[in-house]
Simulated scan of single mutants.
Amino acid sequence: MDFLSLSGAVLAGGKGERMASQDKGLLLFRGEAMALSVGLALRQVTSCVFINANRNSERYADLGFEVIADDPFYQGKGPLSGLATCLAFAKTSHLLVSPCDTPCISSDAFSQLISASKMFPNRIHYLSDAFGGHPLHAILPVESALIMLKDFLDKSERYSVMAFYKAFGCKPVLWDKSEELLNVNTPDTLG
């Protein structure tokens, strides 16, 4: 498999349980909807960007991106539901994903993932820093990852993103700007 083309997806399908069930991607961080910040960073490295959201799809569409909801077949399987849906929707050889609640992420971080994927296009690559892995900042080979993820979801009772990545074959990509990986998932981090 070669690295031929790339699309990007903002993962905004969560329930926002730690944010009092608010739709995190639509919450403002420094005056801008968090999903918009992430989408614009993705748009700097690929022209095809969409949002995976399971509610408020019209409000997400108003941000200027196509919006897709989780496939009902995969719902209830955590972030892997969104990954499966995005992989099935993508029309490119590779898919770059990022969660909506990391509004400080930069296109430079995504460029690191793209470089790693071009060297080893058959693997999943995800960002890591001194504090650990950030598996939802990742680039995946679309066709092979979708085939294996469907099988993984059918057979697994544990819907762990890292368990799937390890089964598939993955490699962390060190990103030393930890401040860009700030996860805004509680009201006090919206500050």
Rank of each mutant, 00 (worst) to 15 (best):
residue 135 P to D: 04
residue 117 S to G: 09
residue 39 G to N: 14
residue 47 S to R: 15
residue 94 H to S: 10
residue 158 R to I: 12
residue 150 K to L: 00
residue 56 N to H: 13
residue 18 R to I: 00
residue 50 F to H: 08
residue 172 P to D: 04
residue 62 D to F: 08
residue 161 V to G: 00
residue 176 D to V: 09
residue 159 Y to M: 14
residue 108 D to H: 13
residue 16 G to L: 03
residue 49 V to P: 04
residue 109 A to R: 08
residue 7 S to H: 04
residue 173 V to C: 06
residue 110 F to D: 02
residue 35 A to I: 06
residue 13 G to C: 02
residue 189 T to N: 08
residue 174 L to R: 14
residue 52 N to P: 00
residue 117 S to A: 15
residue 13 G to A: 14
residue 111 S to V: 08
residue 100 C to T: 05
residue 138 A to W: 08
residue 56 N to V: 00
residue 2 D to P: 11
residue 176 D to G: 07
residue 142 V to E: 02
residue 164 F to H: 07
residue 17 E to F: 10
residue 29 F to I: 11
residue 17 E to A: 12
residue 92 T to R: 06
residue 77 K to H: 10
residue 17 E to T: 15
residue 165 Y to K: 05
residue 91 K to M: 09
residue 96 L to N: 01
residue 97 V to T: 12
residue 37 S to D: 11
residue 162 M to K: 12
residue 68 I to Q: 01
residue 60 Y to E: 09
residue 30 R to P: 00
residue 41 A to Q: 13
residue 113 L to C: 02
residue 23 D to H: 11
residue 39 G to V: 14
residue 48 C to I: 13
residue 180 E to V: 13
residue 113 L to E: 02
residue 57 S to W: 02
residue 102 T to C: 02
residue 127 L to M: 02
residue 85 T to R: 06
residue 37 S to E: 11
residue 167 A to W: 06
residue 137 H to V: 01
residue 167 A to M: 14
residue 17 E to M: 05
residue 26 L to D: 04
residue 158 R to H: 11
residue 122 N to K: 15
residue 29 F to P: 09
residue 77 K to Y: 07
residue 145 A to N: 03
residue 139 I to G: 00
residue 68 I to M: 01
residue 54 N to Y: 04
